[in-house]
Amino acid sequence: MAIIELKDVTKSFGRVNALRGISIKIDAGEVHCLLGDNGAGKSTLIKILSGVHKPTQGQYEFDGKPVELSSPREALDMGIATVFQDLAMLPLMSITRNFFLGREPKKALGPVEVFDSGKASKITNEELNKIGIEIRDPDQAVGTLSGGERQAVAIARAVYFGARVLILDEPTSALGVKEAAVVLKYIVQAKTKGIGVIFITHNVHHAWAVGDTFTVLNRGSSYGTFKKAELTREKLLQMMAGGEELEELAVELDLIAKRDPSEVGKLEHRVAEELDRETHPKQ
């Protein structure tokens, strides 16, 4: 059974529909890639999944039961952990403090509960070793880590706190090739632990490398969800760029490249017409 299922979800901000009729399922132990160009609605969908926004219409089901999340914290408590791009870590705080932020281990000191920093440092060290990150000192600032390491620490944190669903928002987009590969490795590691991973990206190659299921968004709607077996990388690329539009564009680019004067002339005429129609719709 799916851990999370969205049924026919629509999200509007005022009169703008950011998402229309999205249905999506996340199973345990799968990497579900969410693809789409900028403005396709990926961020809005993540925010709904992680409890930041409530859907305007449609249903959010968790373990088969409808839920209404009112905050990221509530989602987190249910085991839905989100690693936001650029916002995963606080650079001036230590790795340990970041790791346990919001869920600090406590010990009783007389009548008051205090932050158990010894235990926190020990666990942080262990968890980072498990995923193969060697740090000299868990008390060093997160700002001393590389971008890939920060994402890795954020993933390790979510896994440690028993995430059942891990939402990763563009975890590889700001990284170099090597670093991205490291993060992709952690995604696979999390999957083998039975975690359902939602991997948001606009990089088809990264998605193809680790994904089991693919959902492509375009301008707030879904092109549908596909298993890896039903797809090729080229098909995926095509869908991301808006399907036929890309094919047409390819032909057009070919024409321009060939510099066939007659064809280019026709093309220019058509583009001009189209532009005119868009700028003066009622004429």
């Binding site: 914290r73 987190l76 936001f84 932050f115």
Partner: peptide, 24 residues
Amino acid sequence: FRTPYGNWIFAAGGDALAARNVGV
């Protein structure tokens, strides 16, 4: 330095949005 509340103080000033996202 020794209480969860102190950790939250750092987080609130470090990046309020990131802190809110993890439940501070």
